[in-house]
Nucleic acid binder design. Structure first.
Lengths: 128, 128
DNA sequence: ATAAAACAGACTATATTAGTCGGTTATATC
DNA sequence: GATATAACCGACTAATATAGTCTGTTTTAT
């Protein structure tokens, strides 16, 4: 029940992009890495996943960098965590094998409130 | 963000004890292990942790076994998960180092709703 | 041309998880 | 009081996941 460093870094990077968000402005990874004190090589992998989930876009070449794919208001913590982390608390094999599992309702409820909590927060709120 | 097998096994073992709960009745681990299809040696370690958290008690020797430390109604999923799993989603080092962390409020909210969800379920409900 | 930046895949080191094994201690029953 | 049963305990191992590194290729503004 721990959030990985990957996800923590990813969320912080996204908040950085949201805080400095401005139309047509891009942010090279080096800047985010330094400013947020995240290992550059690792962040590169993370931002790539975020890009594949359509949360950020990139501009290549000199003066290139990354930027949010849409307004901070429209991106939720749930979007970001969902892109970087397994969000189902369990893969209950028992449920499949035996048709029912005494613990299933617990994990279902947990998954739902986890989702609700994260979906209720958007990036714009986190910039304040 | 995954619940460990240890916790899944632990919860199922506890539900087993709750389902068959009867005053002065004890359940040898072998029985729980077979019935719930949980590796015996592993379950032994798990139940020991549950005992140290005062969720179950033991009776040693022949005809011995484990039993719930109190009524199923009084034991929550939160008690069980809390005994077996790290329940804080992050140990945000940044928060300590920089005084503030842009992501902190997300993890706090997550932790709270995780706790709320699990605390709202008791063992007695899970026996139905 | 060249330099800055994104993109990509393979690799390594560390930590965590899941489980095993070999024993010791307590106690009901014969 | 011997014995068998079941809890208790600590050290060990195997597998997997996490966290990061390294070496390069591609794109593009200047």
């Amino acid at each position: 029940m721990q959030i990985s460093k990957k996800t923590q870094y990813g969320l912080r990077a996204m908040v950085y992009l949201a805080k400095n968000f401005k139309r047509n402005k891009v942010f090279p990874l080096r800047e985010i890495s330094k400013s947020e004190d995240i290992p550059f090589d690792f962040l590169e992998k993370i931002i790539l996943e975020l890009e594949k989930s359509d949360l950020v876009k990139a501009k290549k070449g000199p003066n290139g960098g990354y930027f949010l794919a849409c307004s901070p208001r429209k991106i939720t913590a749930g979007d970001i965590v969902g892109a970087l982390e397994k969000t189902k608390p369990v893969n209950c094999l028992i449920c499949g094998r035996m048709g029912k599992c005494s613990a299933k309702s617990v994990w279902n409820k947990l998954e739902q409130s986890l989702k609700d909590a994260l979906d209720s927060i958007n990036l714009s709120e986190l910039t304040k």
